[in-house]
């Protein structure tokens, strides 16, 4: 199976799920954002915004080698 390297940026309460080397996280080719989130043990309800290379992408988006994946929780305080 082909592996790809992605970079992870996890914000706020999700940051605690960061792996040891977030700048070089190896996953199988074609993995979705939802699968990465599950792999890291992040509850799906904690993820509100997911973005790849700075663009908003849905949970079923398939990642490619070199992608930078960001996740942000729901934030609503004032």
């Amino acid at each position: 199976m082909q592996m790809i390297k992605i970079e992870l940026k996890l914000f706020a309460t999700i940051a605690r799920y960061l792996p040891d080397s977030p700048e070089a996280f190896f996953v199988k080719e074609g993995i979705t954002i939802r699968e990465v989130s599950a792999l890291l043990g992040i509850p799906e309800s904690d993820v509100k915004l997911t973005f790849v290379n700075g663009k908003l992408r849905p949970l079923d988006y398939a990642l490619e080698n070199g992608d930078r994946l960001g996740m942000f929780p729901p934030v609503g305080g004032g």
Partner: peptide
């Protein structure tokens, strides 16, 4: 666009919403 920031890690991003 959505500006997001996490001051604990000094992470800042401007996310394209379209």
């Amino acid at each position: 666009k959505l500006f997001i920031a996490d001051l604990m890690s000094n992470s800042y991003e401007i996310m394209d919403l379209k």
